[in-house]
C-alpha cells in the first residue's frame, strides 16, 4: 500500500465527515438531522477502519466497531425512538441561522481552524496536520449548532457532533490509547441517556421541545 493512496483516501473520508457536518448545520428538519448524523457516524467509522488498515493499527478496528455501533446505530435509534414517542411531526423544523448564515459562519470556522492549526503543528506529518484541522472544524461546527439551534434534539445532535470531531482527531493522531476512545464513547452514551430523560421532562412540563419556551419560566431576571 503506497502512502499516497492511503493519504488520499484518509483525506477524502475526513472531508466527507466535514461535508456532513455542513449538512447538519444547514439541515432544518429535526427528523432528517438524525439520519444525517447517523451518516456522519458511518463515514467516521469507515475513516477509523481505513486508518487502522493502512497503518496496520489493530485497535482502530475496535474503535471503528464502537463508533459504528454507538454513533450509527444506538444513538440514531434512540433519537428516532424519542422522536416517535414524543410525536415530533415529520415536517417540524428548527431553522437555526438559516442556510446562508450557517454556511457563511461554518466556512469561516473552517478557515479559522486551518489558519490556526497549520502553523501550530509544523513538525508533524501532513496527514495529521490536515486531519487535525478537519476534526477541529467539525468540533467548532458542533458547538455552533448547539448555540444556534433551539430544539432540544438538534442541540443533542450538536453535542454528539462535537464528540465526533474529538473522535476524528483521536483517529488522525497516532498513539491515542484505545481506553480513551472507549471511555469517550461510553460517556457520550450516558450523556445521550441523560439528555433523553431531560427531553422527556421538558416535553412533559412545557409541551414543547423548543427550549426557548423554558426561558419564559425563569425567575429573577433583570
Amino acid at each position: 500500500m503506497t502512502s499516497g493512496i492511503s493519504y488520499d483516501v484518509a483525506h477524502l473520508l475526513g472531508a466527507v465527515v466535514l461535508l456532513i457536518s455542513f449538512a447538519l448545520l444547514v439541515e432544518q428538519r429535526v427528523i432528517a438531522l438524525i439520519s444525517t448524523f447517523a451518516a456522519q457516524g458511518v463515514v467516521l467509522s469507515l475513516a477509523a477502519l481505513w486508518e487502522g488498515w493502512s497503518h496496520n493499527i489493530h485497535h482502530l478496528y475496535l474503535s471503528a466497531a464502537i463508533i459504528f455501533t454507538v454513533k450509527a446505530m444506538i444513538i440514531p435509534m434512540t433519537l428516532n425512538f424519542l422522536v416517535g414517542a414524543m410525536k415530533v411531526h415529520h415536517h417540524e423544523t428548527d431553522p437555526g441561522l438559516g442556510v446562508g448564515g450557517a454556511l457563511a459562519i461554518g466556512i469561516s470556522l473552517v478557515v479559522l481552524s486551518i489558519v490556526s492549526i497549520f502553523p501550530i503543528a509544523p513538525a508533524v506529518t501532513v496527514l495529521t496536520k490536515e486531519s487535525l484541522a478537519l476534526a477541529f472544524s467539525v468540533l467548532l461546527h458542533g458547538m455552533l449548532m448547539m448555540v444556534t439551534r433551539r430544539n432540544a434534539i438538534s442541540q443533542l445532535i450538536g453535542f454528539m457532533s462535537i464528540e465526533n470531531g474529538l473522535l476524528m482527531a483521536a483517529i488522525g493522531v497516532q498513539g491515542m490509547p484505545l481506553a480513551v476512545e472507549v471511555s469517550i464513547a461510553f460517556t457520550v452514551l450516558v450523556a445521550a441517556f441523560i439528555f433523553g430523560i431531560f427531553i422527556f421532562g421538558i416535553r412533559d412540563r412545557v409541551e414543547t421541545l423548543d427550549i426557548h419556551q423554558l426561558d419564559l419560566y425563569r425567575g429573577e431576571r433583570h
Binding site: V147, R150, I211, D215, R218, E220
Partner: peptide, 18 residues
C-alpha cells in the same frame, strides 16, 4: 451576564474560543 440562557452562555464560550 448573570441571567443569560444556556444557549447564550454556550454562545459566549464559542465566541471566546473563536
Amino acid at each position: 451576564l448573570q441571567s443569560l440562557t444556556i444557549r447564550h452562555y454556550l454562545g459566549l464560550m464559542l465566541a471566546t474560543l473563536v
